[in-house]
Write a protein that binds this DNA or RNA. Structure first.
Lengths: 267, 267
DNA sequence: TGTACATCAGTGAACGCGCGTTCACTGATGTAC
DNA sequence: TGTACATCAGTGAACGCGCGTTCACTGATGTAC
């Protein structure tokens, strides 16, 4: 019986899918109190009214359960960002790169302008992190001692960065981002140094779509800086480094997002 | 017997100080393999050739040992930064704030200019983090489940930020930092919004020295953004988010430090 | 300077607990003819 | 449509392990007179 979607699933298969979901859900709940490496198969089984050995029908080991949670978390974060930035922007043809940095006011990329989409992406990362702090810690916090992430986590981990890059690419295509370094008076510190330029160029061409313009290395590097700023700020907020100064941090985030968007070069 | 320094210490006292040090050292070593919440008193005792109950003569509980490690880590990070920025800059008198943002090339604050000191501070944080990744994770990584940091950790935790602020203050005093927001063409996104302005002003006056100029809120907020950028980038490097793109990250760090120094307003 | 007593460091056994994983098993669900 | 067999989910007991903390104890180090 080849099943399409859900209908053709046998009772056993449906039960298995359901229980797999419930196990992960309960495990996520326990992350909150015990942290990643306090996660206990026995405790999860107990909460589900099962015997601990039964879980081995669903996950061959504790680490595999952890891997599943990590992949889910990356996917959830990626989906949040993708939903925030909306559909892919203007589908420019292969030769759309010559718009120049002094375009009109309204960028035609997607429903919103590129700057707004970038801001929405940043906000959505923070929003997801605040709503799921333990899953955030799972993927962006300290590594779990004794756990080696298998290669299946690599692709999910790239979803957020790729979504951000998509915004960059659209912005470059529509001229909503200025290629030149941000107007700093001193000429020296703004220029891309050797190794960074190489790494950025390599990355830019690795992620270049089959057709359409590249993201210039300058832009890419500035975006990486903004990206690390965002995650640093989220980590500080979640992990308590702001207590007594910038808490609540909502306003600080809005300010930082705007500043860093300008820094990246968004018009 | 009132002891001065080390001389007047009794043999018992010296032995106790020595063993306390060794226990913490061994515990730090174990952080590397087991992580913070895998830290085991029994394992530490075993490595030291003692029986586990003996440790209770030195630390009343596992959490107290953790607290000691956390305080040590904060202090070590703080010392690294303080050593990097060198002696406090130009000791300007109470009315040294009127230098204006268009000063001369060579800033007379300390041995180096303020921009160089800021850069050195950033580099020293990263250097310390790379040399002590597990202690970095202990204080700046995900919170340890079930552990509540006692209030004694608050003061050590403030050492790094206070050191950075000292650089800012010196720079403001000597006019090595431009108060105006970084030259962004759009006027709106650069301005400080309501709540951030208030939080920044409150913080600025809370940390103001008895005499001498304040750090303007704009500068403070931009420095916070740069500060979170630095820690975000360090965390990404240590926790493995850069693998395959910007690794090794030395050049990226140098570039980011320069860019963010300009962003903060350092001349 | 020497003795009597108090303080302290470290021992070893024990309490009570939780963990991941394996294994032989029972009973239900699915499949092939 | 019904039967025989294979697959799978869940059980319960067990293995071997490690943990934090307490407690009564021995022996060494320090202190007061």
């Amino acid at each position: 019986v080849v099943s399409v979607r859900n209908a053709g699933l046998t009772a056993r298969e449906r039960a298995r899918a359901e229980l797999t979901r419930e196990i992960k859900e309960e495990a996520r709940r326990q992350l909150a109190t015990s942290g990643a490496d306090g996660l206990s198969l026995r405790a999860v089984a107990r909460s589900l009214g099962m015997v601990s050995s039964a879980l081995y029908r669903y996950f061959p080991s504790r680490d595999d359960l952890l891997t599943a949670l990590i992949i889910d978390a990356y996917n959830a974060a990626g989906s949040a960002v993708k939903a925030a930035i909306g559909p892919a922007g203007a589908e420019v043809g292969p030769a759309g790169a010559e718009v120049g940095p002094a375009g009109a006011e309204v960028g035609p990329a997607g429903a919103d302008g590129a700057r707004a989409r970038w801001g929405a992406a940043c906000r959505s990362v923070r929003g997801w992190a605040l709503a799921h702090p333990h899953e955030y810690a799972l993927i962006y916090g300290s590594p779990i001692p004794g756990y080696r992430a298998p290669s299946e986590t690599v692709e999910p981990a790239s979803r957020v960065p790729l979504a951000l890059i998509a915004v960059l690419r659209d912005a470059v295509a529509t001229g909503e981002i200025t290629d030149a370094p941000p107007p700093s008076d001193a000429p020296a510190p703004g220029a891309l140094a050797g190794p960074v330029a190489e790494q950025a160029a390599a990355l830019a061409s690795a992620i270049a779509p089959p057709e359409g313009p590249d993201v210039p290395p300058d832009v890419l590097v500035r975006a990486v800086i903004a990206w690390t700023q965002l995650f640093g700020m989220i980590s500080f907020e979640l992990f308590g480094q702001f207590v007594g100064s910038f808490e609540p941090a909502d306003a600080l985030f809005e300010h930082a997002i705007a500043q860093m968007a300008s820094f990246v070069g968004f018009r």
